[in-house]
């Protein structure tokens, strides 16, 4: 394992994060705070408890997931797309590194960034709502796993994309709807039975449910299933990236 290379990529990517700290941090924190104000305070005050949890607190895990998922994807996809776009990818391709080291560097940095943002949003939530975390270790584990898995997905999108438009396409058309419809703002049990079944095909439901369980011990699907789903998704992404580097798809001539 070329740890020096992993470290080099990680540090380089994190330097970019710190260079653009204001836009990297402030923007997601502000937008999430707006969600808290609108859904938590304004609308939430008119809604009763959901599954025994105050609505303002109930939406916290979903909101964190919403931001963490979109940030992981955009950080990782941009991280690998940018060298492709400006041509510096030649260096990566000619370096003595394998796909795991490249992924560890880029995805590690992208996941770290979104983890930091997720934790800051969690901290911000305490200003708006009364919040208890019943299983902090599981909460952190779900958060880390989500950051890593979606950074892996972002990495694939970054390699797949041929232009900036395509880079935005999947997050905009697929991921955001899935997260919004994945139970960020409601419990699945609130839906009509038919839609409950349909929703179970949305992988994000398992993420949000597991994450919410770590906060309130309240879940839409069994927590073990949530864990399995996220691990399965991560394995799938890793396999895809392994294939990409093996065949050189869209990166090597």
């Amino acid at each position: 394992m070329n740890w020096q290379a992993v470290r080099a990529i990680y540090v380089y990517e994190m330097t970019r994060f710190f260079r653009t700290l204001l836009q990297s941090l402030i923007s997601p924190v502000i937008s999430t705070s707006l969600y808290f104000v609108v859904f938590g305070a304004a609308i939430g005050s008119r809604i009763d408890q959901v599954e025994g949890v105050a609505y303002g607190a109930f939406i916290v895990p979903g909101l964190i997931m919403l931001t963490v998922v979109t940030q992981s994807i955009s950080n990782a996809s941009f991280g690998i797309y940018f060298p492709k776009f400006i041509g510096t990818i030649y260096e990566l391709l000619s370096a003595p590194v394998n796909f795991l080291e490249i992924v560890a560097g880029y995805v590690g940095a992208a996941a770290t960034k979104s983890l930091v943002i997720g934790l800051i949003i969690l901290g911000t939530a305490f200003f708006f709502v009364e919040l208890r975390i019943l299983h902090p270790v599981w909460m952190l584990s779900f958060l880390v796993l989500t950051c890593v898995s979606f950074a892996l997905l972002g990495f694939i999108i970054g390699i797949w994309a041929r232009n900036f438009e395509q880079l935005q396409l999947v997050p905009l058309l697929v991921v955001t709807p899935l997260v919004f419809l994945g139970g960020s703002f409601y419990s699945i049990s609130m839906l009509p039975p038919a839609w409950q079944t349909v929703t179970l095909f949305n992988p994000v439901v398992y993420l949000i449910s597991g994450f919410r369980w770590a906060f309130f011990e309240q879940a839409d699907v069994p927590v073990a299933l949530s864990l399995l789903a996220i691990l399965g998704f991560m394995t799938l992404c890793l396999a895809a990236i392994w294939w990409i580097f093996r065949t050189g798809w869209r990166i090597r001539n």
């Binding site: 020096q4 080099a8 330097t15 400006i86 041509g87 370096a95």
Partner: peptide, 24 residues
């Protein structure tokens, strides 16, 4: 390489250090 491919907003010294690390 033939083309001038450099990350525009990175400092010279950082980009050189990065290359050294990348090669182990």
């Amino acid at each position: 390489p033939q083309e001038i491919n450099l990350e525009p907003f990175e400092k010279v010294i950082n980009t050189v250090r990065f290359s050294r690390g990348l090669f182990g």
